[in-house]
């Protein structure tokens, strides 16, 4: 029997890369959702946490929100360019996106060093020692949620970089869309985190 492998399976409603990414995003949202719900439950219970929340730097947080929203715009532009297989434009827009990611991380590090400087550490040992035991867990959530999100930013930037290298060789243009979806998710999670941690007093 030397027949060519006949038809590949034909039912293809959604490209499988995109479908897989949607599922991954759903899974990520449940993880962050678990963290956010836990945080909210505590936040409602302890009035002391509102005072801690006022120590967050709203201006830097808002800057980061703006930076991430801009980067999402660039990803959309890159996706448009990918539909025309225009690898030069893709390289430009993805580079801008990665630049935004770097700015985001620099701002994040500035914020973290401010917090640590004021004695608001991840473990909260210093706060607990100074008699503010209840408040100390607020910073646990702050660092855990923003830290986990920043890790996603790093991973997203690396993925975008690898995909960009591929498109420069003129192949795998559809991957821009999939990596872009992931990037939008990172952005969207921040949109949830920002009001939760920074704004709500």
């Amino acid at each position: 029997m030397n027949t060519k492998q006949l038809k590949k399976p034909t039912i293809k409603d959604i490209p499988q890369g995109r479908l897989g990414m949607w599922l991954l995003i759903a899974g990520e949202f449940v993880i962050f959702g678990g963290l956010m719900v836990s945080y909210l439950l505590y936040r409602i219970r302890y009035e002391e946490w509102a005072e801690m929340a006022s120590h967050t730097n709203v201006i830097l947080g808002a800057t980061n929100t703006f930076v991430l929203l801009t980067s999402s715009y660039f990803v959309v532009k890159a996706h448009q360019a990918a539909q025309h297989k225009d690898s030069k434009k893709i390289t430009m827009y993805i580079s801008l996106t990665i630049l935004c990611a770097l700015i985001f991380l620099v701002v994040k590090i500035t914020e973290y060093s401010q917090k640590l400087h004021h004695g608001f550490t991840f473990s909260g040992k210093e706060l607990a020692a100074s008699g503010k035991a209840i408040e100390s867990s607020y910073w646990g959530f702050y660092f855990l949620m923003t830290g986990l999100h920043a890790t996603h930013v790093v991973v997203g930037a690396i993925v975008l970089f690898i995909v960009m290298q591929g498109t420069r060789k003129g192949k795998n243009f559809h991957r821009i869309e999939i990596a872009g979806l992931y990037w939008h998710m990172v952005d969207l999670i921040w949109i949830f985190l920002f009001p939760l941690l920074y704004i709500a007093h």
Binding site: V30, I31, G34, L35, L148
Partner: peptide, 18 residues
């Protein structure tokens, strides 16, 4: 998902003392 989130939290409680 919530348990993975919880596992991160528990891990941090053990490792760094949150």
């Amino acid at each position: 998902g919530p348990l993975i989130a919880g596992a991160f939290m528990l891990l941090m409680d053990i490792l760094v003392g949150t």
